[in-house]
Simulated scan of single mutants.
Amino acid sequence: MGAETVPAFGLLGRTDLPGVAGSVCSARRFVRGVLENSGWRDTYDAELLVSELVSNAVRHSKSGRAGGRVTVAVANRGDTIRIAVIDEGSSTCAPRLPAEPDEDAEGGRGLWLVREVALSWGWHEGTAGRGRVVWFQLAWR
């Protein structure tokens, strides 16, 4: 891939969203726009995975409380992009990847899907114990 098809290394975009279910659609639209403006050809996987992570953030962290927020950041990492979802954390719930998803359950497949589709993924507590960051990387397309 030539340098002319890959934008300069670094942050491509960042947005803060309310910690509500409706923000899943906003996160997808934001990621699609940032990637398309950067020359990305196929945004489907990125949109799917950011939907899962924002949904988890709203459902399982303090971001889902009244006034809560979720941040989505998209960065160029050279030959990959990295998308991070930053929530307000939880003292009772940490990201957990089931060995195999329950096919009959209504949920519980989000992180499994991220693991299956992304090149890599992970999570860590935010700086100074504030919030949590869950991220994934995809190959530049």
Rank of each mutant, 00 (worst) to 15 (best):
G2N: 05
A3Q: 14
T5M: 13
V6H: 07
A8E: 09
A8H: 10
G10P: 02
L11H: 15
L11G: 11
L12F: 10
L12Q: 10
L12K: 11
L12E: 04
G13V: 06
R14E: 06
R14L: 08
L17I: 05
L17C: 04
P18E: 05
P18R: 12
G19D: 00
G19E: 00
A21Y: 14
G22C: 06
V24W: 01
C25N: 03
A27S: 11
R29D: 08
F30L: 05
F30T: 02
V31E: 01
V31W: 02
R32I: 04
G33Q: 09
G33Y: 05
V34K: 08
L35S: 05
N37D: 00
S38G: 07
G39I: 04
G39M: 03
G39A: 02
R41D: 10
T43Q: 00
T43N: 05
D45W: 04
E47N: 08
L48Y: 07
L48E: 13
L48S: 15
L49T: 13
V50S: 14
V50P: 09
S51Y: 03
S51F: 05
E52W: 07
S55T: 15
N56F: 08
A57H: 14
V58T: 09
R59Y: 12
K62S: 11
S63V: 11
R65N: 15
R65Y: 13
G67D: 02
G68E: 09
V70H: 09
V70S: 07
T71R: 15
T71I: 02
V72D: 03
V72R: 14
A73D: 09
V74I: 07
V74P: 08
T80D: 15
I81V: 10
R82L: 07
I83Y: 12
A84P: 07
A84M: 05
G89H: 00
S90L: 13
T92R: 15
P95R: 04
P95M: 03
L97I: 01
P98E: 01
P98F: 00
A99T: 00
A99H: 00
D102Q: 01
D102F: 00
D104K: 10
D104S: 11
A105G: 01
E106G: 10
E106N: 01
G108S: 01
R109F: 06
G110D: 03
L111K: 03
L113H: 02
V114E: 07
A118R: 12
L119G: 13
S120R: 15
S120D: 12
W121C: 06
W121H: 13
G122N: 08
W123I: 09
H124M: 10
E125T: 08
T127K: 13
T127S: 06
T127M: 03
G131K: 01
W135S: 11
W135K: 11
F136L: 05
Q137F: 01
R141Y: 09
